[in-house]
Design a binder for these strands. Sequence first.
DNA 1: TCTGGGGTCCTAGGACCC
DNA 2: TCTGGGGTCCTAGGACCC
Length: 415
Amino acid sequence: MAETAAILHADLDAFYASVEQLLDPSLRGKPIAVGGGVVLAASYEAKAFGVRGGMPGRMARELCPQLQFVGGHYKEYQRLGDQSIEVIRDFTPLIERISIDEAFADVSGSIHLFGKPSSMGEIIRRRVRDEVGLPISIGVARTKHLAKIGSQVAKPDGMVVVEPDTELEFLHDLPVGLMWGVGPVTKQRLAEMGIHTIGELAETPGRSLQRLLGRAVGGKLGALAWNRDPREIETHHRAKSVSAQSAMGRKPATEDVIGPTLRHLADRVATRMRAKNRAGRTVTVRVRFTDLRAVTRSITLPAAISATVILAEVAKDLVYTALADHPQEDEISLLAIAVSHLEDDAVLQLELPFELDHEERRPGTHKGAARWVLDRSVDQVRDKFGRESVGYGSVELGERRSIPDEFRELAERPV
DNA sequence: TCTGGGGTCCTAGGACCC
DNA sequence: TCTGGGGTCCTAGGACCC
């Protein structure tokens, strides 16, 4: 861990909304939201009305009647996000990309070249503003946790430097909700104990925290409140799961809904796995009912799979298992497929189809390999002619989904 | 106000093995 | 035969993050 404050956390402000305002100058200074059914990002002008990310579009409109919904420049989001992070790379290769609009960087080894970390932060901010055209906030501190909180405090369009000798002073007056790992539930539980600030959290005995929040969460929060953050910059991590989901409002739990949706989801997941030469052993499905309660069912197979048709079949069995356990539910609002237990996939892997209803699990290697080879050729056609050139579930679904596939891909991390 | 999509990590019980 | 204990894997659910 750095002795000096040399960890940067850089976070683009209201990212999607800022990109839209950059692309269309007539939107600048106006309350806008990216999204539709749900607000994916709100401009600062919209935030002034109380509009927040994750909020239902209808509620946002009530809060701000003149709110303008825009969006759709998905390729630009990716390009401008990448371009911004690349600016940081001019100062250090030790970068941990958290998401499309956010990254940590360790610049301790670059001080002799570029001067103080705070100077680097200011240059990065200016260059992102001048060369990309976007506002970015930066926190500079000795640890990731402090740097991250620093950038949150610095928003919008600012920089906060936490010097090593003022860390606890900085930390202890802040609300617990700013801490990494404190969400709505934990915040509420802490409030019930009269804990509202990080300082109050630090004064609470570790035993009490662990009793209230569990061993892991309680222990972690106690350590962070006392400013012990052992995390280091991780320049590359591999994904541990691949998933896709589809919200559908309110649909009957019938085969004509479930079949095409699962084929489409399996296609998305399996295509991404194959593109990264990975395959997975554990398949998990999630079924959400109309009251938003959700159940999951999973199975761990004896061998990893990445063929679309096989994944769709396994997922379908799991979904019907879940539905059989909830016979009173005849409508669903979401289906999801996730594959975990990922392994590196030999180029010519053997796929094993399984009969889930039988004890016996027969390897049918010829059939499995044939499916995998077929999938590979579909992948190649799509690479040349576009994803829509070959449809699995998307054509059958026959309706516009609220979120285009291009946008979904943005959330993807390096696999 | 009941709302998207892609992820990570933790807990707890049960099965199974040594 | 009964008893004890530890480790690992699997499954389901939940909190959290961006």
